[in-house]
Design a protein around this nucleic acid. Structure first.
Lengths: 242, 242
DNA sequence: GGTTCTAGAACC
DNA sequence: GGTTCTAGAACC
């Protein structure tokens, strides 16, 4: 089989109508066979149409033609649209040509009302967009909240760091003063009464600790430690401390 | 003047067509005067229409009727739509009633193609929505970035706080050890050689400082300070420090 | 997929 | 605002 089963009823009937000679008084091919003409619209509608279709309205016939992609051919005379009254009506479709019945299968009926779907899709899309926008907004609010918390925490932390640094500096000062106080005591020979003889430890492992001492005591300790005895007391204390 | 100047040409012509007796063969009021009938559509279109309008097409006439809110009246017989072939066509409009010409001014022509505007508005709205969504997204990214920075800063701060606290505790320990060391020295009477007699200051203003001492020295200082002389040295040191 | 009524849109 | 061609949409 060729295409007859694939062609809608309307196209088959139209093809027959245009081709059949006994209807050529009302509907026939145009001179070049590229379109067809309806010669007497009123009689065609009332006498011919009901023989092929379930109506006798030209409007319904035209609706079907448009449905299948047929367009009315506008006649132009010298650049001016000239639609002569009661003249023939001409319709054309790129796949409706005289002698080329095989082209009919290319004519497709336009899908019925795709717009509702499009509108629905648009509404769905809008709904999705709005929904996701709300989610983004909520997320943003959450982040803003978290940001606010972090800022607050940060502020507290900076404050604590500042206070701790101050405390640290203060304690450093306290330690320095304590050591200086002891050094002063030693320098004033208030501990001379202690007469024990012990080896000077500074020469053995004091080198490493000297830096630590100097870091704490502004005054160089060397002056303070002339006496081996004072040095002994001092080193004992430092060993005790660090 | 009443309403004649406010009524569109089509409505005036239609009113005239329906009212005039010489056209009643083709177009006239229905029996109850609530609608009008076109009795012979084909002859009406070809013979009457061109006398009143610039065409002879029933379709154009119907298009205008729809444009002005007229609706075709469907005839129903015993629950079934019965559109008798070649029967009269009936149209109705709530403001087109026999004998009530004053109602005509209420009939408004439907606005021409409001849909393009709606579509444009929709597109504009969509554009705005998308634009604002992008802005929100950019804002969110900025906030996320700021949040990340803050988190990082926060982490560093927590680390520094931790370190400072440790340092503080360590220094506190150092100070405590220093003081304990000195107290030990005093307890061992290594400073007994200093024989100066001085009043005991503790009784005068030592009360406030006692707490401070106890805070630093774990061992109660009272035991360590049995000797007035040792007490003197200790207080001197504490005065020096704080 | 066919028929009908109404509306959109371009052009006048 | 009017006319024309085409399309939407409901109903069959």
């Amino acid at each position: 089989m060729k295409q007859s089963s694939n062609v809608p009823a309307f196209l088959s009937k139209l093809w027959m109508l245009v081709k059949e000679t006994h209807t050529n008084e009302f509907i026939t091919w145009s001179q070049n066979g590229q379109s067809f003409l309806v010669l007497d619209e009123q009689r065609f509608a009332k006498e011919i149409l009901p023989k092929y279709f379930k109506h006798n309205n030209m409007a319904s016939f035209v609706r079907q033609l448009n449905m299948y992609g047929f367009c009315k051919v506008i006649h132009i005379d010298s650049g001016v649209v000239k639609q002569e009254r009661d003249g023939p009506v001409e319709f054309q479709n790129p796949y409706f040509k005289q002698g080329q019945e095989d082209l009919l299968e290319n004519i497709k009926r336009k899908v019925s009302s795709s717009k509702p779907e499009e509108n629905k899709i648009r509404q769905e899309d809008l709904t999705k967009i709005i929904s996701s926008a709300q989610k983004v907004q909520i997320k943003e609010e959450t982040i803003e909240s978290r940001l606010s918390e972090l800022k607050s925490e940060n502020k507290s932390l900076w404050k604590e760091v500042s206070e701790l640094r101050a405390k640290h500096a203060q304690q450093q000062q306290v330690i320095r003063k304590i050591v200086q106080f002891i050094v002063t005591l030693v320098q004033n020979n208030q501990l001379v009464s202690l007469k024990r003889k012990r080896p000077l430890l500074l020469n053995t492992d004091g080198a490493q600790k000297k830096n630590l001492f100097q870091h704490i005591v502004k005054e160089p300790t060397s002056k303070s430690l002339r006496s081996g005895l004072n040095m002994y007391i001092f080193i004992k204390m430092m060993n005790y401390l660090f």
